[in-house]
Amino acid sequence: MTDRLLISGLLLALLLCAAVSLTSGGSLTAADLLAAGLGQGDPRHRIILLEIRLPRVLLAILVGWALGLGGAALQALLRNPLAEPGLIGVSASAGLGAVIALYFGFGTLWSLAPAACGLTGAGIATALLLGLTRRGDSLSVILSGIALSSLAVALTSLAMALAPNPYALSEMVLWLMGSLKDRSLQDALTAAPLIALGSLLVLSSQRGLRALTLGEEAAATLGIRLPVLYLRVVGGTAAMVGAAVTVAGSIGFVGLLVPHLLRPLTGHDPARLLLPSALGGALLVCAADLVVRLLPTAQELMVGVLTALIGAPFFLLLLRRHLRETLS
């Protein structure tokens, strides 16, 4: 399949999914929504469209884009199909930041406090990670990521164990599960610049990621500055994923599953996979969020739970097929 066809198809599906998501649910008719979109009609309809549904769809696209692109970039950089954005410890650190904000009840003082603390956590983790991995080799990225991740998870568990009240604990748990519910345009605007910056860093590293197919030594002899490549890709992924986790909690399996699904369609070329993976991630999170919104459950399901529920078995099926192909 040509890249243009794949990207066009994914883009079309994403636009369709976003349109369905904007127009589904509730009793609003198409005419109501059109009027609201044009700034006319019932002001309540405008609030529903522009302040509830639109931020949610935008965030789904942004977060999915970040996770899909981050997953593909890390898998290419570390040359490991099991790498995913959570591996570098930035997600867990962003989660820790948000949990600390919820622990001290900052959220009641300022609604964006969990996001701000999440970003701070992600920023500190990114700085540490870049400091530890500036030599430019995959092992130091993986080991530093595991260490940071474990530390952040341990501190998060500690905060939860010492939660001042059951309400704070439930807030932490729900936040960590990952959801796009009740987010505002402000959340989308917080995440967008960092995700844009991260995307720029990652998408401009295609030459280096392609060269790494041959391993670090051969890539270096093809004119790739490995320390610079590592800084760009790890820094870019950290910026994107930190921002995504900050506004939406941790949404699992997207960064692992999407690159896997699309890799055969891009000739297994790690550079060609980046853009389709970003669009695929956006499509998956947008679709998953639409499903959790439309499912008739007593309490809305967390989108992170759904992506993991669908993603894990699907991943196992893929793995089984892969093993069968390898053995035959």
């Binding site: 040359r79 790494l212 197919t213 041959l214 030594e217 000739g267 297994h268 070329d269 790690p270």
Partner: peptide
């Protein structure tokens, strides 16, 4: 070392 990390 003639390693290749992806089936390109």
């Amino acid at each position: 070392d003639h390693r290749l990390h992806w089936p390109v």
